[in-house]
Simulated assay, not measured.
Amino acid sequence: MQLLPMSEDATITPDDFVIQLKKNLQFRSVFEQILFQQIVDRVAEDRSLTITPDEIQAEADQFRATRRLERAADTYRWLEEERITAEEWETGIRDRLLTNKVKEALFGAEVERIFTENRVNFDQAVIYQTVVPYGQLAQELFYQIEEREISFFEAAHLYDIDAKRRHHCGFEGKLYRWSLHPEMAAVVFGASSGELLRPLQMGEHHHLILVEELIMAELSDEIQSEILDQLFQEWLRDELKDVIS
């Protein structure tokens, strides 16, 4: 590893990197990433999986287009700012592409089966939610929203116990069925799109939920990628245990 000159009076050594990673509790994460790549390289070699220069070039071109690095000079300037060489950048691209090839080779054939067996868990709902501490307040807000005395979004902005949700007027986003508490999943996916659900008590809090949209699962590219990544990450963790045991 080369020393990185910062100025005439300052130089960062490899030991400085290690110390900084440890001080910021990042050493283990980087250590595991190195081992992960070694595992990927080993499997790729066993399966004769390689990355061609054309594949690296295509990925690099796509990256440059995304970052608007239209001229070669723009790319070199970016590399200098990142303090890496063109060769190091290309090696990183190669590692990511090879990881994807290994992932597909190991688990690509299993994705459809996993999806079919767990299809219901991949249903999604776009919901808004307001969580308040008292049942009486939840009931009052429910009736006020129904009578259009206040909008759901105003209620969330004014009364939700979570600052982030208040800021987003109750928006929770597009959530998978498996990510919801079973009791909440049952009422959400038993509702209709656009329906305001009656207050639901969970623990000490009371939830008002607006179901904006229900999306029944199809094996999209997004879901396929998520299943593939989950299988791969589980496998990597098991492999890591064998390496460090």
Rank of each mutant, 00 (worst) to 15 (best):
I12M: 14
I12N: 13
T13Q: 14
P14Y: 02
D15K: 01
D16G: 10
D16S: 11
F17P: 00
I19W: 07
Q20D: 07
L21H: 00
K22A: 10
N24D: 08
Q26A: 06
Q26K: 10
F27G: 04
F27W: 09
R28D: 06
V30S: 03
Q33Y: 04
Q33C: 00
I34T: 11
I34L: 10
I34R: 11
L35V: 05
Q38E: 06
Q38T: 04
D41R: 12
R42D: 06
V43I: 07
V43E: 06
A44T: 01
E45K: 12
E45G: 02
R47Q: 03
S48A: 09
S48F: 05
L49W: 01
I51Q: 13
T52C: 09
D54T: 06
A58D: 07
E59I: 00
A60C: 08
Q62I: 05
F63H: 15
F63L: 09
A65G: 12
A65C: 07
A65K: 08
T66L: 05
T66E: 10
T66P: 00
L69S: 04
L69K: 01
E70Y: 06
E70R: 09
R71S: 02
A72N: 05
A72R: 12
T75E: 03
T75F: 10
R77N: 05
R77T: 09
W78E: 08
W78Y: 09
L79C: 04
E81H: 12
E82Q: 14
T85Q: 11
A86Y: 14
A86L: 10
A86C: 08
E88F: 04
G92P: 11
G92F: 11
G92C: 08
I93C: 06
D95G: 02
D95W: 07
R96P: 02
R96F: 02
R96W: 03
L97K: 01
L98C: 03
T99I: 02
N100A: 03
K101D: 00
E104S: 13
A105W: 11
L106R: 00
F107L: 09
G108F: 08
G108D: 09
E110N: 12
V111N: 15
E112H: 14
E112Q: 15
R113L: 13
I114N: 14
T116G: 15
T116S: 15
E117V: 09
N118W: 12
N118C: 12
R119N: 12
R119C: 07
R119Q: 15
R119D: 05
V120D: 15
N121S: 07
F122D: 09
Q124S: 13
Q124H: 11
Q124E: 09
A125M: 04
A125R: 01
V126L: 08
V126H: 07
V126F: 05
V126M: 12
I127P: 03
I127N: 03
